[in-house]
Design a protein around this nucleic acid. Structure first.
Lengths: 144, 144
DNA sequence: TAGTTTTAAATGCACATGCATCTTTTTTCA
DNA sequence: TGAAAAAAGATGCATGTGCATTTAAAACTA
């Protein structure tokens, strides 16, 4: 239970940090240049749409691994911008229910074509055939 | 030049963002709990030690993919903490030369055993045999 | 060489984040 | 039930970040 990482593991870790920073930086910059809000907004909106029902802030927290206080204020901004509605939760008076507004659905629809191209440019296009598969598998393990 | 990412690529991208956030968050939290400075400090110190010579701030920028103004202030903090020295550059009067102090070398030495264990716990220990290799390879492509 | 352009680095300012704490409500369990 | 513990969310405060601008020096270029 206290063994040491081998050189390859250390390399993978170093590259994980750098690659995420690099690609995320590029995607965020390109999204902003195209006039869109930060990626985090898309992530939240997508999460809510995928759920297909009202979501609680605490669920956003867990799904996106964002600290609670950051979620709270990110939701503030998105509600203020009109992409989300936040209403008191019926069966739990501590909480709130989040729903996508029409503008929120629209944001997803408008951003996706650009975002999709950016994923291809900064990720897909750089990988060899089959590498996306092994990359996704390995990253999946890190999330368990 | 405008093809679309396949589902696997999109999954790899999503997991890249989440896995980096997850592992980085865990490592940073554990380092802090052990009384150490943020990982960025280690990265800078390691970069300078690896160079084996005085480094310029702009080199740190390029190697670590950190925005210029952030580098400037990160160096401020590390100099203030006594881990780095920053002195005017002889042959380029716009710039500065960075060197590790004794305390800086010491920081690397003191942090490494803990950091190394964290890499094993949060990365190495979660991967299947051989997976670190393919992970490092795929991430390397994203950095080109 | 003089004038323009590019580069290195710092900084002011607005905004985002991390952390601890607080309030309210729900859950647990004795 | 009733008290203690845990959970949801907001918020104050200090700190970090992003962005644009500024200063100074170096590199081009005509």
């Amino acid at each position: 239970m206290n063994d040491l990482p081998d050189e390859t593991t250390i390399l993978a870790w170093a590259r994980l940090v750098l690659a995420a920073r690099s690609v995320l930086g590029a995607v965020e910059a390109d999204l902003k240049a195209a006039g869109f809000p930060p990626l985090g907004w898309y992530d939240v909106a997508l999460e809510v749409r995928r759920a297909g029902r009202a979501m609680r802030p605490v669920e956003i927290e867990e799904q996106l691994l964002i600290p609670q206080s950051n979620v709270s204020r990110l939701l503030d901004r998105m509600v203020a911008a009109g992409y989300l509605s936040r209403q008191p939760c019926a069966d739990d008076r501590r909480g709130f229910e989040l729903n996508l507004t029409l503008a929120g659905h629209d944001l997803l629809a408008k951003m996706w074509p650009t975002y999709r191209d950016l994923i291809q440019r900064h990720v897909g296009g750089k990988l060899q055939p089959g590498e996306a598969e092994t990359l996704a598998a390995a990253l999946g393990r890190l999330l368990d």
